[in-house]
């Protein structure tokens, strides 16, 4: 095993307060590891083990803190639902976030990227952890070669097309940041898988704080990673283990869901609305 990337700082240094901590406020997690045999670029993804999610909202709030997410919107939420008849009543919890979709089979471009007027923009190079330079098409919303769907707010025109195009409704306007290309409007925003942490070898904020260890993050291209092993062990590459498989978006967030929680409680977005994406405890 080798480190996926030499972190700019290791946890000892951070504890001593001697090093320059990574951008934002990265946590002290086990540095992400990749197997030697792993592919040249990682494919970041997440597994949500619904058996372990206890609805505590540590992830929701950690995300708010890590990314200074304004009130009125979220980058990740827990949906909860009560069903059944007393005394056989049930309640379950479902963490949802951006699925960092692979995109449809044909062009591998997810709908939010496809609809972005600034995409495809210039050709850029992305340097993989192993030092390889990989070319990709940039945009205000774009897919990076490591699979992350990201927003370049400096290129955003604030048109809101990506907000509507996302079948999951996990995007919103950031009242704190203006659209770079149209300062009269606000930039689009969503989960970026805590890129600033991941690039420094630290897991996303929602993952490190998850007390049930229901969120597992890692490289799906690395057969030795926890996520790859879980995908294999629980046979997660099925339409039943992702959200809205019919949309053909090929989500990279997989759910371990022996009790069919997804089918029972997932509340989809209503057209033009984002109410489903406001975390509330009844």
């Amino acid at each position: 095993m080798t480190d996926m990337k030499t972190p700019k700082i290791n946890r000892r240094e951070m504890l001593g307060g001697t090093g320059a901590a990574v951008a934002g406020a990265a946590a002290l997690a086990t540095p992400l590891k990749r197997a030697d045999a792993a592919a040249k670029a990682p494919r970041w993804g997440m597994v949500m083990d619904l058996r372990r999610c206890i609805g505590c909202r540590a992830c929701t709030v950690a995300c708010k803190a890590e990314n200074d997410v304004s009130l009125g919107r979220f980058r990740t939420v827990i949906q909860e639902k009560t069903w059944g008849t007393f005394p056989k009543t049930k309640k379950e919890f479902l963490p949802i976030m951006c699925n960092h979709c692979e995109g449809n089979k044909k062009d591998k471009v997810p709908p939010c990227v496809k609809v972005c007027p600034e995409y495809p923009g210039e050709r850029r190079k992305w340097t993989s952890p192993s030092g390889e330079k990989i070319r990709y098409r940039h945009g205000a919303t774009y897919k990076r070669p490591d699979g992350l769907i990201l927003i370049d707010k400096s290129l955003c025109i604030g048109c809101g097309k990506c907000l509507d195009a996302c079948p999951y409704g996990v995007r919103s306007f950031d009242p704190f940041v203006k659209a770079g290309k149209d300062p009269k409007k606000q930039a689009a925003d969503k989960c970026d898988m805590c890129t600033h942490r991941v690039e420094n070898g630290v897991e996303p904020a929602c993952v490190t704080t998850c007390q049930g260890r229901a969120r597992i993050f890692g490289d799906l291209n690395d057969p030795e990673s926890s996520v790859s092993k879980l995908v294999k062990e629980h046979n997660l590459e099925t339409p039943d283990n992702v959200l809205l498989a019919d949309e053909g978006t090929d989500p990279q967030v997989f759910y371990i869901d022996p009790d069919n929680v997804l089918k029972t409680i997932y509340r989809q977005r209503e057209k033009g609305k984002l109410d489903h994406y406001i975390d509330q405890i009844p």
Partner: peptide, 18 residues
């Protein structure tokens, strides 16, 4: 800017709540 659990704690094993 941010708080996280202390991974060296045997009590909390590095996680904190909402």
């Amino acid at each position: 800017k941010k708080l996280d659990g202390n991974p060296n704690s045997i009590r909390t094993m590095g996680v904190i709540c909402a």
